[in-house]
Write a protein that binds this DNA or RNA. Structure first.
Length: 877
RNA sequence: GGGUGCUUAGCUCAGUUGGUUAGAGCGCUGCCUUCACACGGCAGAGGUCAUAGGUUCGAGUCCUAUAGCACCCACCA
């Protein structure tokens, strides 16, 4: 059956994926005696669509999993989706606002959650089908969701255990608050942005004086409503004498103390700092130190509350304008300056956060961090690329309590019940009926839900049935590799390590591989507002999943950026086409060869198997070390250069093809078949398609993904064949270069003469036909005497020379120039080599292999230099 | 303010413990529509490895300093 002109991904990919599903290729089994190998997919947002980052994750993990599966492992790649608390809730809130112009509070918790579930049910299929489009071999029967009952039980169990050990606690503290989301945030969820603001200088008069005042410089004049003191440095000569006195708070006419605290930097601003413990994290700390009270002046949406007197009800921004105006009017304003400073913003909605004192639940991360640090220090967990280990240690060593409560509705409700009748707090996995202390039925559950990352942190085992001791858990936990982007090292990876060790007593995985960030072709972060988002599905639609996957693997350097460009993917698409075309060639000539049988004495066969063997070794090593780019390059190079450019060209003559067909030599098919298996993890679709077209294959399996992965074979090493064919290749290249330099068209055949030692001539004569054909020679003559330089020019190789008669070359000026340049290069290389050999310290210090190499190099160079010198002399230049 | 990484061909990047004449893809130039492939073939040009010192028989690779870039953490009002 003849193949189409090129692979048609739109037509074939869906069908192929369907077949994999039918064959159950992706299913891992708890009963299998095979060694398990487990990866959990970083769960994408349930309402999301596939972006390039997902495509990268999907590709790299699929490569790892498919290879292990082919190697005979019981490979489990566990899919799942994340409820993504704030993100999802925000999407639904926006939709609600747009459609009904109401917020969630107008709808009520229960009704609102119904809406979110509706949205989730509607959109959850999207990302799943998109992962399938990419070819991901996920075990769909185990599809999990972070709000599944199974996972929720694990979340509650974890919370209860931490509570019982005192590792989760409730406390009143200053936290980061998003007034738009109306929830507390963890430190990680606050992103600081440079904002061009103003620096207002204000007068705070000393109590009882209309003359003497202190100048306070602030970026947030509106917070003066909550000032409880002003602070100066205790050693500051300017203000020292005023410590302990009082000032009158502008506009509010409250009297507040002047305190001395070394936190104040005398050199910054005026050296006088207003203290607002209710709305500034540092002020809160200073306030605590001086037992100052806390005044909260904003409500949950950052509008001025009852504490703000006449400003009550104003937004932060309006209050600021009004207060500045009032200060100006009452003569308390001195000046204002431009001031650039960093302001924290909500990671999700980009609203400026408002520090706020409130009761929240915290995890004692600093305790959990100890074992997590140890696990990486002792290399029980490796983080790759290794430079991330330091980043990990740095963060872990400075970790602070993790605020896990969120005033959201979409998420795991915290399993805590407060008794109305006594002060008891009941914390339980199963919803209690009564207070655990006074047995009162009047208990109410904590309103807050948990940070999304709390449930994600349990993902490697909650998906396998923990805390039950399930067969899945026993088989597939710990996982093997955790592959994800470095941007969620703290958010997710660190928490999995902490919670994994704490809950199960085992490390959750032995390797963390952090892939680069996907960027556009100019290295810019992709964003909707910039309009530079490259849609993986659109690329797949145009060029096929294999092209995109191969491109991503090829570009998964150990660096920090991965730039996606159309041209790059096109290059990979071209490679898919090349593979397709060479398969067409093989089918055209070798369809009648239906079993593996080959001439073991053929040097070409030996040579291509040796090359293939080197490639298999390289690919295997690279994949073992997550060097996807090198693996992709190695196989690309083998297919395109070794197999297509040389092997196929070597055997392309009528005679050679006939000979091989008659002998039923299967080398061409065998090598291609192995290449397809080697490539399958990276390009699953086209390799599956082509594999079935071959006249025979190594395995009876109904899918290439069930066949074995090619491994290096000792018996396929033929160094002698490699050496000989390497010489043939160099010889052909020399002549071709000469033809190129002299612009001899391919249609013009010219005779060549080859001189060498008899032994070498013997080796070359075997390849006479190939030499002639590939150099487009009219005749190949072998001689054991050098030719006279006056009539010919000599192309020098290490152990042979090629002579071409001048009459075929026309003007030699260019050629001579080239030789002169070559001579300079070779001479200097020779000098370097010789001086090394004369250097005693080199001869005593360098390893034997290096010395031998240099010696051989010097010999070769010397011969070449002499030959070129002789050539130039004889030609009269 | 603290930290990490980067600087190699026109562009994007490899280069594993120092060791033989520094590589790839794309782009560029010339030739070729030869019966797998123009999404192709053949050939070619192009690099004082950011700069200055140092260690070494030997440095793109190790050390120091400088310059520039990127990112992370902190968040001085």
């Amino acid at each position: 059956m003849a193949l189409d002109n090129q692979f048609n991904p739109q037509k074939d990919e869906k069908e192929i994926y369907q077949k994999w599903l039918e064959l159950g290729v992706f299913s891992a089994s708890v009963d299998s005696p095979k060694k398990p190998y487990t990866i959990v997919l970083p769960p994408p947002n349930v309402t999301g669509v596939l972006h390039m980052g997902h495509a990268l994750t999907g590709t790299l993990e699929d490569i790892l999993i498919r290879r292990k599966r082919m190697q005979g492992f019981n490979a489990l790649w566990l899919p799942g989706t994340d409820h993504a608390g704030i993100a999802t809730q925000m999407v639904v809130e926006r939709q609600l606002q747009k459609e009904q112009q109401i917020n969630r509070h107008a709808l009520g918790r229960e009704k609102f959650l119904e809406k979110v579930w509706e949205w989730k049910d509607k959109s959850q299929g999207t990302i799943i089908s998109q992962l399938k489009t990419l070819g991901c071999s996920l075990d769909w029967d185990r599809l999990a969701f972070t709000l599944d009952e199974k996972v929720s039980v694990a979340v509650r169990e974890c919370f209860v255990r931490l509570y019982q050990e005192g590792l989760v606690f409730r406390d009143e503290a200053i936290i980061q608050w998003c007034p738009r989301c109306r929830t507390a945030l963890s430190d990680l969820e606050v992103k600081f942005k440079e904002i061009k603001g103003r620096f207002w200088h204000l007068k705070y008069y000393l109590e009882g004086s209309t003359e003497e005042f202190l100048t306070v410089a602030t970026t947030r004049p509106e917070t003066l409503l909550g000032d409880v003191a002003i602070a100066v440095h205790p050693d500051d000569k300017r203000y020292q004498r005023l410590i302990g006195k009082k000032v009158v708070l502008p506009l509010m006419n409250r009297s507040i103390p002047i305190i001395g605290d070394s936190y104040v930097d005398p050199a910054f601003g005026t050296g006088v700092l207003k203290i607002t413990p209710g709305h500034d994290v540092n002020d809160y700390v200073v306030g605590k130190r001086h037992q100052l009270s806390v005044i909260t002046i904003f409500d949950d949406e950052a509008r001025v509350n009852d504490q703000g007197g006449q400003y009550r009800g104003l937004s932060r921004e309006k209050a600021r304008d009004q207060i500045v105006e009032d200060l100006k009017n009452s003569g308390l304003w001195i000046k204002e300056e431009e001031h650039v400073h960093n302001v924290g913003h909500c990671d999700r909605c980009a609203t400026a956060v408002e520090p706020k004192v409130s009761a929240q639940w915290f995890v004692k991360a600093e305790v959990l961090a100890q074992d997590a640090i140890e696990a990486v220090k002792t290399k029980k967990i490796r983080i790759l690329p290794e430079e991330w280990e330091n980043v990990y240690f740095d963060w872990m060593n400075n970790i602070r309590p993790w605020c896990v409560s969120r005033q959201l509705w979409w998420g795991h409700r915290i399993p805590v019940w407060y008794c109305v009748d006594c002060t008891e707090v009941t914390v339980a996995v199963k919803t209690p009926e009564v207070c655990s202390s006074c047995q009162s039925k009047r208990i109410r559950q904590e309103e807050d839900v948990l940070d999304t990352w709390f449930s994600s942190g349990l993902w490697p085992f909650s998906t396998l049935g923990w805390p039950e001791d399930t067969p899945d858990l026993r088989k597939f936990y710990p996982n093997d590799v955790l592959e994800t982007g470095f941007d969620i090292l703290f958010f997710w990876v660190a928490r999995m390590i902490m919670l994994g060790i704490k809950m199960t007593g085992k490390i959750p995985f032995h390797t963390v591989y952090l892939h680069p960030m996907v960027r556009d072709e100019h290295g810019q972060k992709m964003s909707k507002t910039k309009g530079n988002v490259v849609d993986p599905l659109e690329i797949i639609d145009r060029m096929g999943a294999d092209s995109l996957r191969f491109f991503l693997a090829w570009n998964a350097f150990h660096g920090r950026d991965l730039r996606v460009s159309d041209e790059g993917v096109e290059g990979c698409r071209n490679f898919v086409t090349k593979l397709w075309n060479v398969t067409k060639f093989v089918l055209l000539h070798f369809s009648s060869v239906t079993s593996s049988k080959r001439d073991e004495n053929s040097l070409i066969n030996q040579w291509i198997f040796t090359r293939l063997n080197a490639t298999k070794k390289k690919v295997g090593e690279c994949l073992d070390h997550y060097r996807f780019f090198e693996a992709a390059q190695a196989v690309y190079h083998f297919v395109w250069n070794d197999y297509c450019d040389w092997f196929v060209e070597f055997i392309k003559s009528k005679d050679e093809l006939e000979k091989r067909k008659n002998a039923k030599d299967s080398t061409a098919v065998d090598v291609l078949e192995e290449v397809l298996r080697l490539l399958h993890p990276m390009m699953p679709f086209v390799t599956e398609k082509l594999w079935h077209e071959l006249p025979f294959r190594s395995s009876q399996a109904r899918s290439i993904s069930l066949a074995s992965f090619p491994e290096w074979l000792k018996e396929h090493e033929y160094p002698e064949a490699e050496r000989q064919l390497q010489r043939v290749i160099e010889l052909v290249e020399k002549v071709r270069t000469l033809r190129g330099t002299h612009q001899i068209p391919g249609s013009k055949e010219i005779p060549i003469t080859i001189w060498a030692q008899p032994r070498v001539i013997g080796e070359l004569k075997i390849h006479e036909e190939k030499l002639g054909r590939l150099t487009r020679a009219s005749k190949v003559t072998f001689v054991d005497q050098r030719m006279t330089q006056a009539e010919v020019i000599e192309l020098v190789l290490k152990d042979c020379s090629i002579f071409v008669e001048k009459e075929y070359l026309g003007d030699l000026t260019q050629e001579i120039e080239k030789r002169k340049k070559e001579l300079i290069d070779k001479r200097s290389a020779l000098e370097r080599a010789e001086s090394k050999l004369q250097n005693e310290k080199f001869m005593s210090g360098a390893p034997e292999a290096v010395k031998a190499g240099v010696r051989k190099q010097a010999d070769d160079l010397r011969a070449e230099v002499l030959a070129i010198e002789r050539y130039l002399k004889e030609i009269g230049s």
